[in-house]
Design a protein around this nucleic acid. Structure first.
Ligand SMILES: [Mn+2]
Ligand SMILES: [Mn+2]
Ligand SMILES: [Zn+2]
Ligand SMILES: [Zn+2]
Lengths: 141, 141
DNA sequence: TTCCGTACTAAGAATCATTCTTACTTAGTA
DNA sequence: TACTAAGTAAGAATGATTCTTAGTACGGAA
């Protein structure tokens, strides 16, 4: 994803393009680690020492509202951000707190169809999320 | 659930029976609202004005470790407690932040079987949780 | 070009849920 | 009774997030 792509992504959310938004979106989209605001801040600060943590929080929140990234709360209550917008599940490693993606259309379809057939009384489902907790095998090292 | 049942429940976790543990377990088990520590504190304080919030936190944590209640983090990052130990899903109302139970064996089986057939590479699944976000219809004011 | 209004940003204070520390109390045991 | 370990109250400390305030950048009107 080059500068033009990022520029387009930010504009597509109806947002003005600024340097801070550029580098923050870049940081989030370049990793699959579901970063915290703090991580994004540390990352971005290397080349932009004058950026503030508050700006990182505010910008990430702006991105979430504009629906160009998504956020969720991890098992420790910390906010995590994800530039991947398509439906997918997350694998939580109980030991390391790493969060991996798990993308399986068959599972998505299975669950979606289940809830189409089995409507819940008095509740309208908008999002379905499967959270898988366990631990990674075969860690490198 | 009477005093004897609660006493047995606490003992079954290998814990000493105390008045504080009694009233805290009672408060958690009497509601289906997935209470916060603060809620439990307010509840218990009515008849036990000298109890401290720290004790409520510590006792709830003790219960979780003893596996006589469970806890999870809600979409706002706040701890929620649940005396229901059997596998079940939660319905999050995006507007009111209420959390309702959704218990459906068919869904549980469906998902469990899916992951038995479709092992994830390099990851051992220990817990599976389905989180449903949306909103309650027909609220009684 | 200059001026103005609006959106954006930096810095740090404030908030809130949770954890930690410390000293006191209780219950059980020798 | 005296000793010991576990439990509790009170409040300080922590850490992630939000809020406040003042300064900055930028596009459009004059
Ligand atoms: Mn993801
Ligand atoms: Mn529940
Ligand atoms: Zn998919
Ligand atoms: Zn069941």
């Amino acid at each position: 994803m080059d500068i033009e792509d990022i520029k387009n992504k930010i504009s597509s959310g109806g947002l003005k393009f600024t340097h801070q938004r550029m580098v923050i979106y870049e940081a989030v989209s370049q990793t699959h680690s579901h970063p915290t605001a703090e991580w994004v801040y540390e990352q971005v600060k290397e080349n932009n020492p004058s950026i503030s943590l508050g700006t990182v929080y505010k910008t990430l929140d702006t991105f979430v509202n504009a629906k160009i990234i998504q956020k969720f709360i991890d098992t420790n209550g910390v906010m995590r951000f994800d530039a991947v917008l398509e439906a997918h599940s997350h694998l939580y490693d109980k030991e390391t707190n790493e969060i991996r993606d798990y993308h399986n259309h068959q599972l998505e379809t299975l669950i979606k169809e289940f809830f189409e057939k089995n409507k819940i009384k008095d509740f309208e489902v908008e999002d379905i999320e499967v959270v898988l907790k366990g631990h990674n095998k075969q860690k490198i090292n």
